[in-house]
Write a protein that binds this DNA or RNA. Structure first.
Lengths: 348, 348
DNA sequence: ATTAGCACTCACCTCTATCGAGTGCTAACA
DNA sequence: TGTTAGCACTCGATAGAGGTGAGTGCTAAT
């Protein structure tokens, strides 16, 4: 794709995209020819623009208006023209200082990250906590609520607390539960949930005929507790900032956006897509094809600690986002959070 | 106040309010005289309306438009004219069936309640989980994160899980923590957090010179853990439904609302005001005087279990809410949730 | 290949006219 | 004396007309 455009066309496309990013208005040939010194008259610029439009990189809202980049145009810009600013030492230090992670619960860390991302970018910050399945077992606790109903509390290695109500054999006593907890805590410590699951399944089969009743109970309980059904946690910050963007200024678009942010399902789905990738990823609205998120663009990066718990953070904004500014922020923040996750626990 | 108005004025005010509730448009004298059979001509109705306007119960957006009730008008309507529908057995059963509380975590119960409230009322549902301070102690657990940093997990009697990171003496070993946990769990079980606090303070003073080092550590730890700094949890559901209401149809008002819902602080403040009251409470926008929530009205009721943990739930909508329909829903839901809280634990 | 020139398009603004729902006031009526 | 019919008036909402200007496409000259 990159080679279809000659240098002049590239320069003009870049100029148009960047002008449009700051102005949110259709860009005219005159403006381009004046602001950037290509030594080209408006008429020449117009010729190039007509070509770019034919290639689907630009479009004009109506006959007598300037051009705006299409999704494809932005995609091209991101793929080949965007040069991401790298943060210098000062900027990195400033960013580091923006975050206050001292003595925070994991939930608070996630929320704080979202808040800061949103504040710095002036768009909407998203943070998806590490998925339950990607966490590493640290401790489990069972608390009896009523006959046959237990509250299970699970703490991951990084201090992420999750809980769940499970049904259980009503005959289990409190001291049974304590023993079961102790057994599981010693057996499963340090294993990833995936490892835990396969281990549990394996042992359950082996022990099917075994007579250690308590151990069997323990396996059954932990199966119910850890098998599934713990939902993703998504933190959305600064949704109202999006409503200030000119592309979402009509009531209908606002409703759409708020709905999308509220249901969270769409967003989680979108963030999931990037979970396997490394580094910063950019999804462009049209591509993502979620009606409610039309016109939006998503910059994400995964974070993880050394043992693998993977979460995702990022910024969602209008397609017309300031990528060169936001990308490094998202990138560095992901690195920062990864390091914080590791620091949460003793390195041994 | 009620006695200043004669019956005819009351009838007309009621008619205007109810018409406005369904139409969201200024109500004219002609409409009133036709739809309701007071046997009064529009002219007579106009006379009454002029009186009501003078008393500050009505106002007209401009000279030649119908009247709309003022905040004061709504207040009067709610105080003296509103007759709340009581739910019949069928409706109660339907409402009960709307909620699915089986094997849900407390967090999920709260969220579910918000969702259903919002769905039934078509406005925005609010649920504030019982305040930490109003809960009853059930269990506490300390998990070592790093040298000198502990994760404290607190479970209230109703199964509400909260956690917090606290600093602690780095020399504490894992078995120390276990002992401390056991000690606290046996000592504090069944006490309200307020009782716990006074007990801790008392014992800390008594034991100041004592030589039981571990006990002292236990007291210190639990003080740090339970003293304060656990924030309220507020669940907001169906915010986007509010954006469909005609009074919030302009971009500016939408932004205001979304901002108010997002920051949550305003809402928590507002909900706090009703924490001491019993039964359903109604706050009207102008009265609440929060700029961001102008034009909104709040119907709340507290719920609590037998031991006193108090939370609040309700519905926030335009002042022009269908009170007679929403009030009984909020009322009955609060009763329902109260009962669920009690059922969460063994009755002993 | 580039560009100056020109006719053309179309969103946007403002001005004006019209319409109609609703009012307040007054005079007539039961 | 309370009620009502009649009437002039107000004012938002809607629609159309005209002007403006930014921007385009095309063509012919450089």
């Amino acid at each position: 794709m990159a080679d279809i455009l000659n240098e002049r066309s590239q320069n003009i496309l870049e100029a148009i995209v960047e002008d449009y990013i700051t102005s949110a208005e259709p860009v005219g040939s005159r403006a381009i020819s004046r602001k950037y010194d290509f030594n080209l008259s408006p008429a020449s610029v117009r010729n190039v623009m007509a070509d770019l439009e034919e290639m689907g990189l630009l479009c004009s809202p109506h006959t007598s208006s300037g051009r705006i980049p299409t999704g494809k145009g932005f995609q091209y810009y991101i793929d080949t023209l965007l040069n991401v600013r790298t943060l210098n030492r000062n900027e990195k230090q400033n960013l580091r200082n923006s975050y206050r992670f001292q003595n925070m619960r994991m939930e608070d860390v996630m929320q704080e990250v979202g808040r800061v991302l949103s504040g710095l970018s002036q768009y909407t910050g998203l943070v998806m906590a590490p998925k339950f399945i990607s966490t590493v077992f640290r401790q489990i606790e069972f608390i009896r609520l009523t006959q046959g109903r237990l509250l299970m509390i699970y703490v991951s290695e990084t201090g992420l607390v999750q809980n769940k109500v499970i049904e259980a054999d009503p005959s289990l006593t409190v001291s049974d539960l304590e023993q079961i907890g102790n057994y599981l805590n010693s057996e499963l410590n340090g294993l990833s949930i995936q490892e835990v699951r396969s281990k549990l399944n394996q042992e359950l089969q082996e022990d099917r005929i075994h007579y250690d009743k308590l151990k069997k109970q323990a396996l059954k309980l932990s199966c119910a507790a850890l098998q599934d059904g713990i939902e993703d946690q998504l933190y959305v910050s600064g949704a109202s900032l999006m409503l200030g963007q000119p592309e979402f200024s009509t009531p209908e678009q606002m409703k759409r956006l708020v709905h999308a942010f509220e249901s969270k399902k769409l967003l989680i789905e979108l963030l999931d897509r990037g979970q396997s990738a490394q580094g910063v990823q950019i999804f462009i609205g049209s591509e993502s094809s979620q009606i409610d998120l039309e016109g939006c663009s998503l910059i994400t990066s995964n974070f993880s600690n050394q043992k693998g718990a993977i979460g995702t953070l990022g910024v969602i904004g209008p397609i017309r986002m300031n990528y060169s500014q936001v990308v490094p922020i998202v990138d560095f923040t992901a690195q920062l959070v990864s390091r914080v996750l590791d620091r949460e626990i003793d390195q041994d």
